[in-house]
Amino acid sequence: MSSISDIIELYLKQILSESDSGVVEIKRSELADIFQCVPSQINYVISTRFTIEKGYIVESKRGGGGFIRIKRVPLHPKQANLFEVLLEQIGHSISQVTAEHIISRLIENGLMTEREALLMRHLISRETLQLPIRFRDELRARMMRMMVTILFASKGE
Rank of each mutant, 00 (worst) to 15 (best):
S17E: 15
S93Q: 12
K13M: 10
D6F: 00
E18N: 14
M112W: 04
S19D: 09
I68C: 12
V38S: 13
R142G: 14
K13N: 10
R134I: 12
S95Y: 02
I42S: 01
V45G: 03
D137G: 03
V58D: 00
V23Q: 11
Y11W: 09
T98Q: 15
L129D: 02
G110V: 09
K27L: 01
A141Y: 01
R28G: 07
L82F: 07
E30P: 00
V73D: 08
E88I: 05
E116P: 05
E18Y: 03
E30R: 09
I15H: 02
M120Q: 10
K78G: 13
V148C: 07
E25G: 04
E127N: 14
I42F: 03
R136Q: 15
Q36F: 10
E157D: 07
V73T: 12
I68F: 06
P132R: 08
M1G: 12
G110S: 08
S5V: 02
H122P: 00
R69H: 10
Y44S: 06
C37L: 03
T113S: 15
L87E: 05
P77H: 04
I124T: 07
I70W: 04
A153C: 10
L151M: 11
R126Q: 12
E116C: 03
Q79I: 00
E84A: 15
R105K: 15
A32H: 01
P132K: 08
D33T: 13
S60F: 06
Q41R: 14
I15E: 09
A153I: 00
R28V: 08
K61Q: 12
S17K: 13
A99S: 14
I94H: 02
M112R: 04
Y56A: 06
N81V: 14
Q41H: 09
P132W: 00
L31V: 14
E53V: 03
M147P: 00
A80N: 05
S17W: 01
L151H: 03
I124N: 02
A153T: 02
S40V: 07
V58P: 02
S29C: 01
F83P: 03
R121Q: 11
E18G: 07
Q41N: 08
S29K: 14
R136E: 13
I103L: 05
T98E: 15
S125A: 13
T113G: 13
G156Q: 06
P39F: 04
K155R: 12
P39Y: 03
S93P: 02
G66M: 06
A117E: 09
K61T: 12
D137K: 10
R62Y: 04
T48P: 01
K61M: 10
M146T: 13
Q79C: 00
L10S: 09
E114C: 03
R134A: 12
M1T: 10
L12F: 03
V85D: 13
M143V: 13
N43Q: 12
S2K: 14
L151S: 07
C37A: 07
E100T: 09
R115I: 14
G22S: 11
I124L: 07
L139I: 14
A99G: 11
I46Q: 04
L119R: 08
C37V: 15
F135S: 14
T48M: 06
Y56R: 10
E30F: 03
